[in-house]
Design a protein around this nucleic acid. Sequence first.
DNA 1: GCGATTCAGTTGCGTTTTGCAACCATAGGC
DNA 2: GCCTATGGTTGCAAAACGCAACTGAATCGC
Lengths: 151, 151
Amino acid sequence: MVRKRLDDSHCAVARALNEVGDWWSLMIVLQAMYGVRRFSDFQQALGIAKNILCDRLARLVEHQVLAKVAVGEQGSRHEYRLTPKGRDLFTVVVALRQWSDRWHPDSRSPGMHDRAEGQPLQELYVSSSDGRRLDVRDVILQPADARKDTA
Amino acid sequence: MVRKRLDDSHCAVARALNEVGDWWSLMIVLQAMYGVRRFSDFQQALGIAKNILCDRLARLVEHQVLAKVAVGEQGSRHEYRLTPKGRDLFTVVVALRQWSDRWHPDSRSPGMHDRAEGQPLQELYVSSSDGRRLDVRDVILQPADARKDTA
DNA sequence: GCGATTCAGTTGCGTTTTGCAACCATAGGC
DNA sequence: GCCTATGGTTGCAAAACGCAACTGAATCGC
């Protein structure tokens, strides 16, 4: 999907959504963060149709969120691994997950823990350069305009 | 869109994506954060078809991300305003935007500034309870499983 | 070496979602 | 009453999606 209409958009969020903004793409990235690397494992974990998975993996590789790495004896098998850019989506995933947990308390999410200490993670929040916690209304956002014919 | 398949998923990210995980929904929320409230203004700002906009707004209202507020003389006109839950997506939007800015340096995003001080915002990052900055690999993520037949 | 199996796709086809445009319905101006 | 603006709804074509069946290469069993 992703109707590439806003490819040329100057809006950073629009461009981000162009790369990982459809349902499956972020779920694939999430699975990759869980350690999934093989085509068939993604397929099983997500219950996604193979053609869609193919398409999404290709798109994620194209956008350098994943890298397709040949593996195995004659390079016949391969894996999809997160690139640094892909790993950097971690913040986004954590933000989404924390949002979900805050507003769907019924969720029995196992929670995320620091590997070293076993402690839960801190909640993400937007803060100013001097450390004050900020709400949307405390921030000046300039549209940067979603359409090309900005005006 | 959003094939409600994973509605019953225990995966927090999946449920979040169910509510705001399609292309337009997050763009609408973003516009709302910019201060857009009226149907026609969303339509103009995004260049979205009216039926889709209708559908997305209704879904966002249903999920309590936006609230439809009657306004004007006889309540004929109305506005869509962010609820607290919607405003709380700010972290997600900022995370996405910062990610995009980091990996698309060509982007001339005007940047986001603290209204009080005029300073740019801090970069979001995931941190442990004792403040160490964490990468994906420093965190224990439990799948919580994307499929219902969890096992 | 030969068939069976696994993995990673691709192809076909029918269903669902999009997106565009054109059409209602109500309110207000004049 | 006629015109415009706002906020939708409807119809239809095109694209995306999901399923299942098929391909093609590599590996396994023997």
